[in-house]
Design a protein around this nucleic acid. Structure first.
Length: 413
DNA sequence: TCTGGGGTCCTATGCCTT
DNA sequence: TCTGAAGGCATAGGACCC
């Protein structure tokens, strides 16, 4: 059996842990740059504030209904998330952390357990120790546990936040209830196509001929279909090292100056290099892109990207900046107002397995230097040590005007 | 004025080698 | 030596997730 444990309105719930006055009140959390709404409490949902709503369009509604609006505070949410995950792992050794607010639990050898009361115990323990409310869906496969979780959450009054798909008739009833566009793994495009064939719920999808699903939705769709039929096709995934690492941001304003964009790209590259070293990886390619503001169709539009082959595996910030700026010079065009740029490092190999080249390679001194920089940044705070290409005057800041006072208290040992 | 960020997997295509 | 089939690899793009 698989359980999907999902934290309710996670970011909003985190803010409430640190400020209990927010209970029963509408709360929304904004994206980076305070651009749009990325999390809402139930009260905010009831006001009709949709996911992804642009902040500026909803300011009036926020004011009208005294909505508590917060900039996102990922350090806080990450810390709360690991507290929840730690507790979950005391209930079964088989846990897959699926996202910041969700985990799959597998129960092998629990046949004699009363899963009803076991799930209640999980829910009670998490909520009591962290203050974060959760819902649990239990079913024979991962995809079905997603469905069960949805039911647990949707009908909380009846389910108490826990739903167990006990037999096949429960499975069929649940799938008939679930709209096709709400099935995990079926996005907008697939939902549109399925509806054209009069497939409107998950049960109809599960009954489609396998060849049709294979043809139109590839092996991914086929696996999903089997899962919904109750045939296990997905296992818990063990955490692997990342295959690509990205740092991309929208700017606070539009910029047309090369030096400004260069500073941003350098900073993104440094961030990527830090993430590489943290994971113990080196990259062999670096992808740089930039684009104008797609929402300003009245202005000339331009976007471009480039993959720069580094030639040797490295995680040296110094080297990577060099290559990223070379790439940027290739794609930058004068006369456009840029709104977003990003850096993605790819072709990752483990640091200790890199092939050294005779003719080119990282300066051996870099490794020690980077270690020292990472150490100082971790001690004095991120950004304590900067590179010449970065904005030394700290001119650029992400807009985070509505940060809550939530503090993380870490007790070591 | 103001619309997020970071990932994964799969397929199609073209080129090269066997 | 030529030819076609088959397989490997890189790349781009689409679809999905949170």
């Amino acid at each position: 059996m698989f359980a999907l444990v999902d934290c309710n309105n996670f970011y909003a719930s985190c803010e409430r842990v640190f400020n209990p006055d927010l209970r029963q009140k509408p709360v929304v959390i904004l994206s980076n740059n305070d651009g749009c709404v990325i999390a809402r409490s139930n009260e905010a949902k009831a006001l009709g504030i949709p996911m992804g709503a642009p902040t500026y369009k909803y300011e009036k509604i926020f004011k009208q209904h005294n909505v508590n609006v917060f900039s996102s505070n990922y350090a806080l949410y990450g810390d709360m998330s690991s507290r929840v995950m730690n507790i979950l792992s005391t209930f079964t050794p088989d846990v897959e952390i699926y996202s910041i607010d969700e985990a799959f639990l597998e129960f092998i050898g629990f046949e004699r357990f009363d899963m009803d009361s076991y799930c209640k115990k999980i829910k009670y323990t998490v909520e009591k120790s962290t203050g974060i409310p959760i819902c649990i869906g239990l079913a024979p496969t991962k995809a079905l546990s997603k469905v069960a979780n949805r039911i647990a959450k949707k009908f909380q009054d009846k389910t108490g936040g826990i739903f167990i798909m006990k037999d096949d008739s429960a499975r069929i009833k649940a799938l008939k209830w679930l709209k096709i566009e709400d099935v995990w793994g079926i996005g907008r495009q697939h939902a549109l196509r399925l509806k054209r064939y009069n497939i409107t719920n998950a049960h109809q999808f599960s009954e489609l001929p396998a060849e049709w699903v294979r043809k139109h939705m590839s092996v991914v769709g086929l696996r999903l279909q089997k899962e919904l039929q109750g045939i296990k096709s997905l296992d818990l995934e063990t955490p692997a090292n990342k295959k690509a690492i990205a740092t991309t941001r929208s700017f606070d304003k539009q910029y047309d100056d090369f030096e400004y964009v260069k500073e941003r790209v350098s900073s993104f590259t440094i961030k990527c290099a830090e993430k590489l070293r943290k994971q113990g990886s080196c990259c062999q390619m670096i992808y740089v892109f930039l684009k104008t503001n797609k929402f300003r169709q009245d202005l000339p539009q331009y976007q471009n990207s480039i993959v720069v082959q580094v030639g040797y595996p490295t995680n040296s910030s110094i080297d990577l900046i060099k290559f990223a700026v070379l790439g940027l010079q290739e794609i930058f065009r004068e006369g456009f107002h840029y709104k977003k740029a990003g850096v993605i490092v790819m072709g990752l190999v483990p640091e200790n397995q890199r092939q050294l080249s005779f003719f080119s390679g990282e300066n051996p001194k870099h490794s020690n230097l980077m270690q020292e920089i990472d150490r100082m940044n971790s001690f004095y705070g991120s950004g304590a040590v900067r590179f010449g290409s970065q904005d030394l005057g700290n001119l650029w800041k992400m807009r985070r005007e509505r940060l809550s006072g939530g503090q993380i208290i870490t007790i070591k040992g």
